Simulated scan of single mutants.
Amino acid sequence: MPTGVALRDPREQLFDAAERVLLRDGPSALTSRAVTTEAGCAKGVLHRHFADFDAFLAELVRDRIARLDGQAAALRAAVGTGTVADRLAGVLTELFGSVAVAIVGLVISRDELRARLRASTPTGIPLLTEATAMIADYLAAERAQGRIAADADLDALAPTLVGTAHLHFADRTAPPPEPAAVRRLVAALLGGAA
C-alpha cells in the first residue's frame, strides 16, 4: 500500500470502507486489513486514528447510531401527517435498507465490541435500542395527537415493530421485502392502536 497519501477525512473514509466490506462480505470478513485495503490506505492509518480495531468498530457503530438523529428529527416533524402505518413503514425500510442489518450482526458477533458499547447503550442491542426509542417517541407524539389509541402499550409496540422488521430484513443475501409488504406488516402490528 502506498504511504504518504493524504486522506480527505480518514475516519469517514475508513467507516465507509467498513460498511462496504460488511455489506458485501458480512461481519466475519471485517478485519482491519479488509477495511484498510477497501479504503485504499495503509493499515497504520486505522491505528493512527483508533487505539485498536474494536475501538474503531465501536466508533463506527456510534457514528451510525448518531445518524438516527436526523431520521428522528424528520419523524418528529412528520407527526400528524400521512398515516402512522405509512410513516413507520418508511422509517423501518430506511433503517433496515441501510447498513443497520449488518451492524447488528457485527455487534452480536463480537463480545469485545458489545462490551465497549455498553457505556452508551447499557441494555439491548446497540442501534436497535436507539431505533426502538425513536419509534416509541414518534408513537407517543402521535398518541398526543389522538392518532394512536390512548391505551396503546408503546413500550411493547415499539420493540415489536423494530424486531419484526429486523427479522424481515435480516437476510443480507436476499432482496429486501417490498414496501407494500412492510406496510402490511406495520399495519398488522399496529392493529387497533392506530
Rank of each mutant, 00 (worst) to 15 (best):
T132G: 06
E112K: 12
A140E: 06
A149W: 05
P159Q: 04
I148Y: 01
Q145E: 13
R143T: 08
L128D: 04
D153H: 13
L106M: 10
A141D: 11
A100C: 10
V104E: 08
A140M: 08
L154V: 09
R110H: 11
L113M: 02
I148Q: 02
T129S: 12
A149Q: 06
M134S: 06
A141Q: 07
T160S: 07
I148V: 15
A102Q: 06
D111I: 10
H166D: 06
I135R: 01
I108Y: 09
G97R: 06
R110F: 09
D151M: 07
V101L: 01
A140F: 08
S98F: 04
I108N: 13
I135A: 03
F96P: 10
L154C: 07
A170T: 13
A119S: 12
A156S: 15
P159H: 05
A115F: 12
A158G: 08
V107Y: 03
G97K: 07
G97D: 08
R147D: 01
T164L: 02
I108M: 12
P175I: 14
D151T: 14
A158V: 06
A150F: 09
V101G: 04
E94D: 15
G163N: 10
D137G: 13
D171Y: 13
T164G: 03
L167I: 14
V104L: 10
A136E: 03
A141R: 09
R172Q: 13
I148P: 06
F96A: 05
A140G: 10
F96Y: 14
P126R: 02
D151R: 11
R116T: 03
V99K: 00
A133H: 13
V104A: 10
I125T: 15
L117Q: 02
A140Q: 05
A141T: 12
V99M: 00
A174W: 02
E130G: 06
L95H: 10
G124I: 08
L128V: 10
I125E: 07
T132K: 00
T164F: 03
V101I: 07
A174H: 03
T173L: 15
L161C: 05
I135M: 05
I108L: 15
V101A: 06
D153L: 12
P122V: 05
E130T: 06
D171V: 11
G105Y: 05
E94N: 14
D137M: 03
A115T: 15
G163Y: 05
E94S: 15
L139H: 01
V162F: 00
T173N: 14
P159T: 08
R143C: 09
Q145M: 14
R116N: 03
L117M: 03
R143D: 08
I125D: 08
D111T: 15
R143P: 13
P126A: 04
R143E: 05
T129A: 14
R118Q: 11
R116Y: 01
E142I: 04
T121Q: 02
D155C: 09
A156Y: 14
L95S: 11
L113W: 00
L128M: 14
L154F: 05
Q145A: 14
P175L: 14
A100Y: 07
S98R: 05
R172N: 04
S120A: 14
